[in-house]
Structure formats: C-alpha cells, structure tokens
Write a protein that binds this DNA or RNA. Sequence first.
DNA 1: GTCAACTATTTTGTATACAAGAATGGTGAT
DNA 2: ATCACCATTCTTGTATACAAAATAGTTGAC
Lengths: 221, 221
Amino acid sequence: MSANTHQKLRDEIENCILTGEFHPGERLDEVQLAGRFNVSRTPIREALLQLSAIGLVEIRPRRGAIVVDPGPERVFEMFEVMAELEAMAGALAARRHQEQDRSAILEALERCQEAAESDETDRYYYENEVFHRAIYAASHSGFLEEQCTSLHRRLRPYRRLQLRVRNRMTVSLAEHREIVEAVLAGDADAARMSLRQHVAVQGDRFGDLVSGLQKMERRRA
Amino acid sequence: MSANTHQKLRDEIENCILTGEFHPGERLDEVQLAGRFNVSRTPIREALLQLSAIGLVEIRPRRGAIVVDPGPERVFEMFEVMAELEAMAGALAARRHQEQDRSAILEALERCQEAAESDETDRYYYENEVFHRAIYAASHSGFLEEQCTSLHRRLRPYRRLQLRVRNRMTVSLAEHREIVEAVLAGDADAARMSLRQHVAVQGDRFGDLVSGLQKMERRRA
DNA sequence: GTCAACTATTTTGTATACAAGAATGGTGAT
DNA sequence: ATCACCATTCTTGTATACAAAATAGTTGAC
C-alpha cells in the first residue's frame, strides 16, 4: 500500500465534495467510505479530520462527519473575501511582476481568448483558473498565493454555476484584458480595482448565484 | 476518557507551538507526545494531521512531523495579508456596524487606553486582541471574521515581539483611536487605510520584526 | 583512518480490536 | 393509537498490533 494513503484519500474525498457527489449536509459514514476505497477506517478518519480542519466537513463529537453546507450568505461572504485577496494579489503583481510572470499571464490570457472564441465553456473554465493562478504567482507572495489558491479551489463549484450564465464568458474575457493591462502597466490601483470588480458577486450576478444555489439544492432533493 | 480527546490535544499542541515551547523546526515525536499526554498514538496523530492541514506543522511522509518554520519573508507576507484582511473588516464594519458593535468597540478602546496609561504591556496585549475581534465582529461577515481570527492567532507570537518595542503601545493606541473614529463615522475608506497602516509591517517596524525573529532564533540555539 | 555496505533498531502508517456513547426499534402503559 | 422507557444495535473514539520504511550503528574493506 502506498506510503501516504490518507493524503490521497483526503484529495479524493475533497474532490467528491467539490464536485457535488457528496452533497452538503450528507453524512459521511466511516465504514462505508472505508469499503468504497478498500482501506480501513484509520486513514479515512485521518482524511476526514484534515478536511474538518480546512472547513469542508464538520465533525460532531460521537455523531460523525457531515459535509458542511455554507448557505447562500456564507458563500457570498467567501466571494467577498476572495475578491479582496485577488485584488491584493493583482496590486502586488502590478508592482512586483517579472519577465516570466509577464509571459505566463499573457499566455494564459491568450488561451482564455481561444476558449471563448470557440465557445468551449469547460475549456474556458480551466484556462480561467490558469489565468488567476498566474496572477497569484506574479504577486511573489507565497503565503498570499496559497490563501488565494485554497479559497479559489473551495469556491470552484459556485464559480462553475456562474459561468453558465449567458455571455458571462465574453464579459469575463474583457475583464481579464483590463486586468492584464493594469498589471503589466504596473498600475497597482487599477489592478486592484479591476480584479475586485471581476471577482465580486455584485448586481445581477448576486441573483444568478442565489438561483444557482437553489437549483443545486433542488437537484439533490 | 473524554469524547473528543484529539480536539483537546490539537489545541494543546497548537498552544505549545504558538507559545514557542515547541520551536520551529523541532521534530514532534508521536510516542513522546503520547507519553506526555497519557494517550495512545492514535489521537496524537489525528491532532498532528489537523495541525498540518492549517499549516502549523509539516508532515513529511514516513519521516515524521516538524513544526513549520515560516522564516522572515513568510512572516512578513502573513502580516501583509493580515493587514489587507483587517482593512477589509474595517471597511465593512464602517458600513455595517450596529449599536452593539459600536459599544463593544468603544469599550475595547477604553480598556486599551487604561492598559496603556498604566503601562501594563501584557494587559494591553490582551485588550488589543479584544479590540481587533470587535472590529471583525462589526464587519458582520462570519467568514471574514473566521479568517481574521485564525490568522491573528497564528501571528500572535510575532506580534508579541513587536509590542516590546519602545513607545509601541502609545502609537498603537493613537492608531486605535483613528480606526474607531473612521469606523464609527461610517467612513469605509478611512477605516481601510487606518487599519492597513496599523497592521502592516512598514518602515522601522520591519527592522524590529527581523531583529525580534533573530533574537527568537538565538534563544533556542 | 575513512568510507561504504549491511544489519539492527526505531518510527511511521495501516489494520484490527475493544469500549463507550448515540441511534433505533420494540414493548408496555395510558 | 400515541408516547415513554428500556434493550439492542450501530457508530465513533481510542488502544494495540503488525508491517514497511527510514535511520542509526556496526563491521569490514580499502
């Protein structure tokens, strides 16, 4: 058996939660999971404990683990914080980016454009992540990069909802261009503003998010 | 035996790390810890895994757990992010605070002043935490509050270093007054600026931090 | 004397066993 | 028929056992 089973299990279970296979509120039975992954309860417990530490599951003493249900307000709050962290990353990137960051960002932008032009939602979804990670990296703050990556990952399922909205891809791409322009020009304030705007759930997007969340909820009922 | 031994163990070990009893780089031997706390290895492992999930310890496969040593740059980056998160909390607090937040903030400020006037560093250190938590609460964003609290806690040992610097308490108190003024006036931008300024490690404080870190390192050598 | 290789010991990782608390089902009383 | 209380069952939490990997110590060769 591989050296670090619980690490892989943690990723697998995390994935099941983020993809929605294990839906919010669902109880995660240890023996059931152990059976599914062909391991004993020990590494399953270790994986669940790690997930509880990062807030994906809640462990109620003697009563098992359940997938945390953030609820609409909490999801909104998470986007609020994400917007601010990305804004910060953009501002730092504008000041600190180097040649390799510049090319990484431009290449990511290019790929986003290709995906948008050929109307490939899934591909855009992926290239969008690459783009944002390029901004994080350009901030040259390892800690900020980690925080952004972690929260970005956690918001994945909700962002996926939003991309389905009509024309969102075109708007998103235009915003990306604005962000790149500001960052590469070294304009920290403009980068901050454009990223905050890009990530924030404001105006129509708030309604879109809520209706998406409700759709998610209904589907699992 | 209590229902949730590993939860308590997690807190105890976390405390030992934050107080410096377990210093950065130290190897955390499972059987040794098990002996110290009179439990088996199982709950110790569960505690360590949770601590690794929040970044306090690093678990190298098959090679044990060590206390993470952030290093000066990483600590600086953490303060940078903390400043931005607190600035955000301040801005939200300025817009969203209610009557109970107002009185909580004013009371916390009052207590900080008392501590500063009687020159009680330890008491100021404590009341300062209460003050900042009052700001987080006034933001009325549960997620942001959690993030702030968690990072604040993690930066505790380093903040303690900084308070020892001459006159820091007086300066800090004056900054608190400025923050309160902005928040209670509902001036989000002013609140953002003053909190960013208050938390950030800039100018002289950077040198203070680095020298403090070096002193810490020497002490354990 | 130093370096390398092999063995022994220690230590981690996973499985299993056992104990204690929660959920569940059934029986009896009202 | 409904509710309460008790027993049974199931699940979690902790301890122990065992296997595999890493480290340390020792011996031998150059």
